[in-house]
Design a protein around this nucleic acid. Sequence first.
DNA 1: CAATATTTCAAACGACTGATTGAATCATAC
DNA 2: GTATGATTCAATCAGTCGTTTGAAATATTG
Lengths: 206, 206
Amino acid sequence: MTETQEKILDTAERLIGEQGYAATSLRQIIAEAGVNLAAVHYHFGSKEDLLDAAVVRKAGPVNEARIAALDRVEQEAGEGQLDIDDVLDCFFRPMADVTRRNQKFVRLMGRIYSEGLMPQIVQKHFQPTMGRFLAAFRRALPELPEEELLWRVHFMVGAMAHTMCGPSSLPGLMDAPVDIPRRIERLQAFLSGGFRAPIAAAGEKK
Amino acid sequence: MTETQEKILDTAERLIGEQGYAATSLRQIIAEAGVNLAAVHYHFGSKEDLLDAAVVRKAGPVNEARIAALDRVEQEAGEGQLDIDDVLDCFFRPMADVTRRNQKFVRLMGRIYSEGLMPQIVQKHFQPTMGRFLAAFRRALPELPEEELLWRVHFMVGAMAHTMCGPSSLPGLMDAPVDIPRRIERLQAFLSGGFRAPIAAAGEKK
DNA sequence: CAATATTTCAAACGACTGATTGAATCATAC
DNA sequence: GTATGATTCAATCAGTCGTTTGAAATATTG
């Protein structure tokens, strides 16, 4: 990994995280990175491959740490039931850890999910981890029907993506200090309550 | 409101909702709407103003219905405490209602929030309603510190935006029938549990 | 019908997009 | 020291972007 490649990846990670993929041009990236335009295509091939490289560089270690933590928790549990808070912890703690060193990547991840324009990237880099965690959620919440479980994981991803993307648009949070690990703690507690909630009755009219 | 204007707004609502604002070009909109390119600028002024018009057209009635529902619930409660489920119902039921007639707008709303590139639009059209609901959430959850409450509302918006944006990327939900009102019921139950959850201890190390 | 106002149209504007080229520069190895 | 490969560079490609223009077409009014 040359210095040029790292400068490109760092800048792409930051700018795409802040502005989105479609709204960020290669020329803006290379200008702020201080490299030549052709270097992007020489090292990465295309704009889409650049995003892929930026994601895989950071997502790989995070997902490995998630799986490792889940392995540990599942081993401790043996045949018994899993605790939903432990599963959530396995999922969010590695993200909080990497965030302590670098706030930019988690915003890129939020964009990836929110923008939703690159399902193949989500598929390639996050789906295997998601599969493992879906199984863990099932074990932690065996009374939840499969479809309800999938939706609740979907809600979790949405809340996470929006939370990681940037400062809140709510008046009181705009100028709050950006303490993302604390944010993740709050999110985790909120999601824990959500996962434990009773299922909505279908078609209730009040 | 001429037929041309409606065709433009309908198509913009659909395409921007599906693809995002930056990724959708005016030429794609006018091609699918079957109108001339200049008509967009003649009727709306600019691309940004077009988005604004598409939002205000549908968001206005939804937010009015939300406020009306909240008025009713608050009147019934008198001086007493509000029920969080009632407040959530005031917020989500008008959205579910409009969704039963038109699924496109709620996806556009999701995009607006997710893309986060137009804080001024969110500010202009959603902030007044949000202010009323923040006060209601405070009354329903008086034991929650202000900052925690703001974050939980933020999580709610994120889960909502992601859920409204489109089909889930989770394997089991990709080909599920798109029953958005049912989706909203599930989301509401999930959020109810989240809002009631105990607050996370700060900096817990497990 | 004539006159006025509103709306539509094809054409073009300059700026910007992602991508490509071939020569220049650098590093490494013989 | 020179040959070889890897990397950087300015210049340019064809295409698209949002926006503007002025003339044609349509609708409205007197």
